[in-house]
Simulated scan of single mutants.
Amino acid sequence: MLKRPLALFAGLALSCCAVVAQAADVLRVSAIPDEAPTELLRKFKPLGEYLEQQLGIKVQFVPVADYPAVVESLASDRLDLAWLGGFTFVQVHLKDPKATPLVQREQDAKFTSKFITANPDVKSLKDLKGKTFAFGSISSTSGSLMPRYFMLKNDNIKPEEYFSRVAYSGAHDATAAWVQAGKADAGVLNASVWDKLVAAGKVDTSKVRVFATTPEYFDYNWTVRGNMDPALKEKIKQAFLALDPAKPADKAILDLQAASRFIETKPENYQGTEQAAREAGLLK
């Protein structure tokens, strides 16, 4: 009488093992959507091919709709590796304390945000009282959290009370476009995207200019899910660290990531980000 249930159980067990084995053969990677989806895919393609070669497994990029989707997917093991901002890393880490930030670009240890405007009357934040202002995503470290924190800490500015209207563009490049088009008197975006937009001629610097820069803070990193096999985790980290700007193929990958090189990072680097989020009322 027990033969059929036992056989069924064995079959289910084997099926589960097959699913796990199949999942281990694919590295599911994503990124916070801080730029247009087409730009994220363009940046990731050569890096994904490089990781496949280094790891010996298939690498699949999984697009997401918004910042919370990356957080939930990584914390619930639906993703293996994700490009996060400092704030989204904190959110993941609170849900999964074993989630590990492996590497960051060298400049992410000393990152900044740029305040921009196309209004000739705006010389400083003091000139923006009663005017309109644009952040990126509400979950963005460099497009919302840290600029908000420094405005409050250094100038006692509470955006919702200080500006006539606060809007969220959803992405750094969108913030620049909004300011250039006059949809907001000023806005803030991360320094890396600003520099890229200027270099590519995608922002008219005869109209839009930087009028302030935040102090430095830790920002972006590549984070893996907490229950990843330690050996695979180490291989991923070493693959990033091995990228050498002296090698043309590696430099092409680094350039797309706006990176001079990758360096190791650790959870402790983001304790200040968590404190800033709590003081800004973005974490309870």
Score class of each variant (00 low, 15 high):
Thr132Met: 07
Phe61His: 09
Leu102Trp: 06
Leu51Asn: 10
Ser76Arg: 14
Asp80Arg: 05
Val64Tyr: 00
Gly56Gln: 09
Arg105Tyr: 03
Phe133Leu: 04
Val90Gly: 01
Leu81Asn: 04
Leu125Asn: 04
Asn156Ser: 07
Ser113Met: 13
Pro101Tyr: 10
Ile57Phe: 04
Ala69Leu: 10
Ala118Arg: 00
Ser144Cys: 13
Ser164Arg: 06
Thr88Ser: 12
Glu160Arg: 10
Leu79Ala: 10
Asp77Gly: 06
Phe133Val: 01
Lys45Val: 11
Asp66Lys: 14
Arg148Lys: 13
Phe44Tyr: 13
Ser139Pro: 00
Asp155Trp: 07
Leu74Ser: 05
Phe111Leu: 06
Gln91Cys: 05
Asp66Gln: 13
Asp155Tyr: 13
Pro147Arg: 05
Pro120Ala: 05
Leu41Trp: 08
Phe44Pro: 00
Tyr50Thr: 11
Gln107Lys: 13
Asn156Phe: 00
Ser139Glu: 10
Ser137Val: 03
Gly56Asn: 11
Gly86Ile: 14
Gly85Val: 06
Gln107Ser: 15
Phe111Thr: 11
Asn156Thr: 00
Lys43Gly: 15
Ser113Ile: 02
Lys158Cys: 00
Pro101Phe: 12
Ala99Glu: 01
Asp121Arg: 10
Pro46His: 05
Trp83Lys: 09
Glu161Asp: 15
Leu152Met: 12
Pro120Cys: 04
Val71Gln: 08
Gly136Trp: 01
Arg165Ala: 12
Phe111Asn: 14
Val166Gly: 03
Leu152Val: 00
Lys43Leu: 12
Glu39His: 07
Ala99Leu: 08
Asn119Trp: 02
Glu72His: 13
Ser113Ala: 11
Tyr149Trp: 10
Asp66Met: 13
Phe44His: 05
Leu128Lys: 05
Leu94Phe: 05
Val59Asp: 01
Ser144Asn: 12
Arg165Pro: 00
Tyr67Pro: 07
Asp77Ser: 12
Gly56Ile: 09
Pro159Met: 06
Glu160Ala: 14
Val166Tyr: 06
Leu152Ser: 10
Asp127Met: 01
Ser164Pro: 00
Arg78Thr: 03
Val59Ser: 02
Ala109Ile: 09
Arg78Lys: 15
Ser73Pro: 01
Phe115His: 03
Val62Gly: 06
Asp66Tyr: 12
Pro120Ser: 01
Thr117Glu: 05
Val103Tyr: 07
Tyr50Asp: 12
Ser124Tyr: 10
Val92Glu: 06
Gly143Val: 02
Ala82Tyr: 04
Phe111Met: 13
Ala75Tyr: 06
Pro97Gln: 05
Asn119Arg: 06
Leu41Ala: 14
Arg148His: 11
Ala109Ser: 15
Ala134His: 02
Pro63Ile: 04
Ser76Met: 09
Gln60Ile: 00
Leu74Ile: 11
Asp108Gly: 07
Val166Asp: 02
Gln91Thr: 06
Asn119Ile: 00
